[in-house]
Design a protein around this nucleic acid. Structure first.
Ligand SMILES: [Zn+2]
Ligand SMILES: [Zn+2]
Ligand SMILES: [Zn+2]
Ligand SMILES: [Zn+2]
Lengths: 152, 152
DNA sequence: TCCTAATTGATATCAAGTATCAATAAATTG
DNA sequence: CAATTTATTGATACTTGATATCAATTAGGA
């Protein structure tokens, strides 16, 4: 067997697009494999920089399609451009590291149970919810313990 | 007694600025009283339109000061400009009507308790959280029950 | 292969928000 | 109160993030 090939963790983003009746093109494949290969959340501009061979408009359009398909989460940030993160589970929330920006998905049944219990107390019909937990991730904690004074 | 005067519900936004060592100016008073008088959440651009006598830069600066002072909440929206809402309680969350955009503040002790319990399960240190519940508010429900087919 | 509709991407444009900086207005001092 | 000092203002230019346009290209089916 030859040297092992790097296999993307998820090879379904392009499928998510095809499932919506969109054509499989080289530009779209470039965008989706880049998202799948690179780790973690990203901004649209980062993706454009990483893929200079794909036009900005196409990058933005592809991101929009993926969000519409539910394959990407759009995370509006308190300031700056929104981040996008691959959606691995149907319904979930996110942890965001305030130090380095790392985004992780999480699910917790208690949270969902509490949400359902809120229906009685809230005026109107609940149609959805969103939640983010801001953390200092373990990487960043380790970093500062090693005497790193700078935030990066 | 003459015809009753309209009294703003909260007259403390300008104080929040003065407490931070900022001067009380007519431009800032115009901004804060407009926020206090008008009801509900708003965008920076809306405020600019409502106060043509105040420069855009000043409107944006004043909003930023108020957010820094904790007197306004900044709510990043999934798309479009963020909304701002007067902060009545120290820590709280928001309900947002997906139909009309109305924003309400809410607090629920169970939610906070669950948050604390999550500390054990999440990798890293929790430094904060944010949560929004998307609703169809009772106004909008009533509206559609009265046979209003249009969303507005 | 040929045809047609979808896609692309350079460019222009838009929208939200910030930086600049001379003119103005608050507070402070005498 | 007048003079002085310092913060504030706002017109303007600019930045950033994102979308609209549209001729040229490409995917996918007949
Ligand atoms: Zn981190
Ligand atoms: Zn949930
Ligand atoms: Zn409503
Ligand atoms: Zn909370």
């Amino acid at each position: 067997m030859p040297a092992q090939t790097i296999v993307p963790v998820e090879a379904n983003l392009i499928n998510a697009l095809e499932d919506r009746g969109l054509r499989k093109t080289s530009a779209r494949s470039a965008v989706t494999t880049r998202i799948e290969t690179a780790s973690g959340a990203f901004t649209a501009e980062q993706l454009c920089r990483d893929l200079p061979e794909v036009g900005r408009a196409t990058v933005y359009r592809t991101i929009r399609h993926l969000v519409d398909a539910g394959a990407l989460c759009k995370l509006p940030m308190l300031d700056g451009a929104p981040k996008y993160s691959v959606a691995r589970n149907e319904h979930h929330h996110h942890t965001i590291c305030s130090r380095c920006g790392a985004v992780e998905e999480f699910r917790h049944s208690t949270v969902e149970r509490v949400m359902r219990s809120l229906e009685k107390e809230i005026d109107g019909d609940i149609v959805g919810h969103r939640m983010e937990i801001f953390i200092t991730c373990s990487n960043c904690l380790a970093e500062s313990n090693r005497g790193g004074s700078s935030g990066r």
